[in-house]
Design a binder for these strands. Structure first.
Lengths: 339, 339
DNA sequence: AACAGAAATAGAAACGTTTCCAGAATAGTC
DNA sequence: GACTATTCTGGAAACGTTTCTATTTCTGTT
């Protein structure tokens, strides 16, 4: 009784065949105006809306894309999602959001889930480029996908950031301010941002002909906790660093927490550089000097790469597009006082 | 050639009927161990995975739920999403995230989209409780849903916050510190949080027998921009307020931006109370005193209400569950100096 | 008015699964 | 070993749409 009307009901009421109803919906220019009118009237009368489950079944797609990240509470990911969503939505796609909490098992489950007709493609930032389980999943991927800021030797599109250049720039800036004891806290070498950032950091010292402060390189994770732990340790060192680069926006949160707890002031007691434009960084009194990257453009590009493949031009080889960073001067860095 | 195997292929290879294969997957206890073995072997061999599009079609569900909010970059929404996701995922559901940017048209489109078989249910925070278009959509809703922090006279489950009590408490606290010129910036009366917060604010003054500072009530929108605009105006008043309650976590961001721009210091020049635990509020030197609410519990509750309905017990009347707030003391409020 | 060619429509098959029903195989009882 | 009761299985229908083919209807020309 309350059952939703089907295309069959519409056909019956308007006195045409189901095929014609379908064409009225999907290719109205191929149906005569008179017929179209009758069909539309029936649709109106019955309040008919095509059932997308049946459409998905028959068309063999879902107009859905998966967005897989570790944590949507990371504001960078949220902004990126919005950019991707805006681009995809205007082409009729909806997004599944899968927040994997950084657990490999959930990541693998997310990828599996999006296979087999649940989604037409995916955009993702995986947690570990070396994780065998994830790599295997990616290799067997049946749907087009785009990696965000990750680098895997497979034929998969990727949108990257020029982290090395960004870090070199930031580090050189601190060196010019007279800093020598500069610390970097960032991801491990299991993901590209970790590797590249450390590389840029080291390069800056080498180019200046200065020794690399190996003991101040903390490269392991992008988490708040890691940032907090390492910043706490660094601040308690006998020969404390004069500057910290929190290379990761969650790390910055951890570092600020440590700074708050230790009662240290920025920039008087220590200089600080963060990553990614965020409310925390921009509103922190100073504000915090940042290595920024164009998140909207990155998201939009990822969406476009995916849309190309979804459009059927899946023949081209994988593309890797890298975006530059920009050092945004805040007030969180001071020259090292002469002594 | 590369076509994914179907249940038919599995049936052929294992020498049983398709019905038996289906039952091997969905009710293995009803098939004999020997048969089950053969079927599983064939599944393994063919790398078969059931096509969810076909399952959705036949089962008339999608194991998918829509999460509709105005902006996922709002950290409260992100946390809420995570709580909902965790709860739903463990019951096999995935979430569509629809970020409507506060536009009624996108909101209506999102609701429409999730109908007609795209999702089995939805959880949402609509932008305007009076918007006719949205109300109409909600009234005709074919899928179970839960409102987050919104109050609409329809038979829909809702999870709410006791904003009035929270605001009364916060305002009373400021009054006890000697503040009289207290400003509140919050949502408009078109949504429950706006109405309730203003109500609590007014009640606090009334209970203290003090006149309500009507000129300091700015109730219109939850946006960053509104917070910025109103805070800027308030700070430039001849008789500037001695305290501001930024009643909305995005509003707080706008207020802090204004405070930064005007070169005002918290709490020396002005006392400040924010809403919702967030990195910005917790890391801002002080930190900022907050009216908090249990976001995880709220998200979990919303998910549970929805799951109940999805489980088929859709006969019970709509429930409205409200959660209390908690005043978290930071360091952003000072007593008003005697003069 | 007859015809050819084009345009529009009807009808059926197909997409891959679940589920129902009838019938076959098995187990249990005497 | 025959019978009944039970468990399992095969086969077909169904879910609601799109798309293909064949047929009908229309348009324009003679």
């Amino acid at each position: 009784m309350d059952k939703p009307a089907t295309i069959r009901d519409v056909a019956r009421v308007s006195g045409v065949s189901v095929g014609t109803v379908s064409r009225s919906l999907n290719a109205p220019e191929t149906v005569r105006p008179g017929t179209l009118g009758k069909v539309r009237a029936a649709i109106q009368q019955l309040g008919f809306q095509p059932d997308s489950r049946a459409q998905n079944m028959r068309r063999r797609n879902t107009m859905t894309v998966g967005f897989v990240i570790d944590d949507i509470a990371n504001p960078w990911h949220a902004s990126c999602f919005k950019a991707v969503d805006a681009e995809m939505r205007q082409r009729g796609y909806s997004l599944y959001l899968m927040s994997t909490n950084g657990r490999a098992a959930e990541e693998a489950a997310a990828i599996d889930m999006l296979q087999h007709g649940r989604a037409d493609g995916m955009i993702m930032t995986i947690n570990n480029e070396q994780d065998a389980r994830t790599i295997k999943r990616l290799k067997e991927l049946r749907v087009p996908s785009v990696l965000l800021d990750r680098d895997i030797p497979l034929d998969i599109d990727a949108v990257l950031t020029e982290h090395a250049t960004g870090l070199r720039q930031a580090t050189s800036y601190l060196i010019e301010l007279g800093h020598r004891r500069i610390a970097i806290i960032t991801a491990g070498s299991d993901i590209r941002p970790g590797r590249e950032r450390v590389r840029g950091f080291i390069e800056a010292f080498q180019r200046s002909g200065l020794p690399v402060p190996e003991d101040l390189i903390r490269s392991q994770s992008l988490s708040v906790d890691f940032g907090f732990r390492e910043a706490t340790a660094l601040l308690q060192m006998p020969e404390r660093p004069t500057a910290i680069i929190a290379a990761g926006n969650r790390i910055l949160v951890g570092v600020l927490r440590a700074i708050q707890q230790q009662g240290v002031s920025v920039p008087q007691d220590i200089s600080l550089i963060g990553c990614d434009r965020s409310d925390v960084a921009l509103l922190y009194p100073g504000p915090i000097t940042l290595i920024d990257r164009p998140v909207e453009e990155i998201g939009r590009t990822a969406a476009q790469l995916l849309l190309e493949r979804l459009g059927g031009h899946s023949d081209r080889p994988a593309q890797r597009i890298a975006f530059p960073t920009q050092l945004i001067m805040g007030g969180s860095c001071l020259p090292v006082p002469k002594r």
